[in-house]
Nucleic acid binder design. Structure first.
Lengths: 151, 151
DNA sequence: AATGAAAACTAATCAGC
DNA sequence: GCTGATTAGTTTTCATT
């Protein structure tokens, strides 16, 4: 991965629908060269997908919550993660250091939906305790930051 | 926004580079109709952008952290958010209910980078206390979930 | 790895319904 | 708000360097 690859990645992080022709003009390469490079980045697992970003409220997701989980002593972290992945409302799942073992971000229609998720979590094998924090407002999400300097 | 719009949105959430022709075949409309609908969704602020998803580790982001912030009594939440937005390492910024007022997700190259961010946060006017939790592993992020039933 | 050229496909525009 | 036709632009493939 060279500087051109990183330039392509940043451009696609900012506009995931940029055409290869446009990207080629940006980095000073032909269309097919850009296609080659991006295919390689995709196959190498550097670019993992392309997503439209949407306004959750417009889609009917009225409530976002962060939920910390404590696990019971015997629980296997990996097994718990697999069970958590069945709960489609969980958009993000981080295994963390600290008192809680997982932090989740859930997106639901309303408080009733949140109640259902928290209840499901409490009933999930290996989960001993949940700690729910409601998001009052999202200032920003998934902002594109600068890439670290190269090694 | 009707059922076809929601179908288009879900398709674009899953593949943000789907062509309008392809989307048209999916929903049973012509290309121009799809273009129309998507333009309208973009202008209405329902679709807010398109992003390539990348593997943070491949780009040199070795450390992800969740950082809770307590604000000083006099602090104006909005002003603090503006100052926080200068810290490019903060990918997500949620104003939350509870003991902490903000929860941030930061992505940095290494622990040194994390130290720098936490130090900057501590020096930010209006921030009285930080609580940093290191992410040990990301099970998933930004997963596409089902849309809530219509009203 | 990159290029240019050709073929196939897609996007954008627009008149008509 | 959708369609079909037109034109312009893009993607893909491939022979060449």
């Amino acid at each position: 991965m060279d500087a051109v690859d990183r330039q392509l990645i940043q451009a696609l992080r900012e506009n995931g629908r940029a055409s290869y022709a446009e990207l080629g003009r940006l980095v000073g390469l032909s269309g097919p060269s850009v296609t080659d490079r991006i295919n390689r980045l995709e196959q190498a697992g550097v670019i993992t997908g392309y997503r439209a970003e949407v306004d959750p409220a417009s889609l009917g997701f009225g409530v976002t919550a962060l939920i910390g989980l404590q696990l019971s002593d015997a629980a296997d972290h990996e097994e718990v993660a697999v069970r958590l992945s069945d709960l489609r409302e969980i958009e993000d799942c981080w295994f963390i250091a600290g008192e809680d073992s997982y932090m989740l971000k859930a997106r639901v229609a309303d408080v009733d939906g949140l109640e259902a998720v928290v209840r499901s979590l409490s009933l999930t094998k290996g989960v001993s305790r949940t700690r729910t924090t409601v998001v009052l407002s999202t200032k920003w999400e998934n902002r594109v930051n600068e890439l670290p300097e190269e090694d």
